[in-house]
Design a binder for these strands. Sequence first.
DNA 1: CAGTATCCCACGCGATACTG
DNA 2: CAGTATCGCGTGGGATACTG
Lengths: 145, 145
Amino acid sequence: MDTEREYDVLSVDCPSRMILNRIGDRWTLLIIVALSREVLRFSQLRARVGGATPKVLTQTLRALERDGLVSREVFPVVPPRVEYRLTELGRSLLEPIAAVKKWAETHVEEVLEARERADAMASAASEAMSSASSSMARPRAGVLG
Amino acid sequence: MDTEREYDVLSVDCPSRMILNRIGDRWTLLIIVALSREVLRFSQLRARVGGATPKVLTQTLRALERDGLVSREVFPVVPPRVEYRLTELGRSLLEPIAAVKKWAETHVEEVLEARERADAMASAASEAMSSASSSMARPRAGVLG
DNA sequence: CAGTATCCCACGCGATACTG
DNA sequence: CAGTATCGCGTGGGATACTG
């Protein structure tokens, strides 16, 4: 069975595009990473994933559950206890994610350096443009243009 | 040199978070994939990456250039000719991306099936709630809540 | 504890048109 | 050909407060 070219991310209408959009949001990857080693309760997840508000956490978890990547188990006790764990499908995402995570952690510095160099160049160019004026040439600090 | 735990994506202020935000946008991954096998000109890139308008293409390419992942070569001819290629740093991103891409392409269907099942469940639950009424219970078609 | 409920806004992105 | 320039909107997501 050659399923190599069945899907193509570069194609506009390819379903695999949707996957990228899904895991490309701000919290999905982080939650999966957090759940990679242990089953976690809601508040534990909150504590582990820095910056996540209950709202985004719930949204993302619901979406992950819907897509079969995470399972949610409710214990009928009081106070409530809810546990989240990766499904097998979710765990299968761990490898690719680990690769990305590792890349991110090992190459941040190179990226940051490249960025600084680029900004320095741009800044120098701006100054050259405005002759010897002191026009403060903004170094384009934002991520995207 | 043990640099294992120097960075942690789960930490709010970790720089590696930024990397995820960068490659998590709508076009970055696609452009890198497109450039994985060949050097491409602007319009070729546009043709390959389905749906990309010149604006987003330029934005993303500039950002990639700034971060040292893509290099831009301008040929002083008319009509203009500009070639984009991955830098070595950019090429190093190819492996993790390929892993994600492969996962996306091989597991879309499972995700889609899980989603349909979840929606069917939710829909059934809604109908049960409204007794035998014909209240159209919307199956929550959107990606996120 | 595990969420909901609102309000609100930045901004990523698309559409469209124009230029060196 | 390889971009810029504008305009506008959809919505992801932050802040805050409330609830079973």
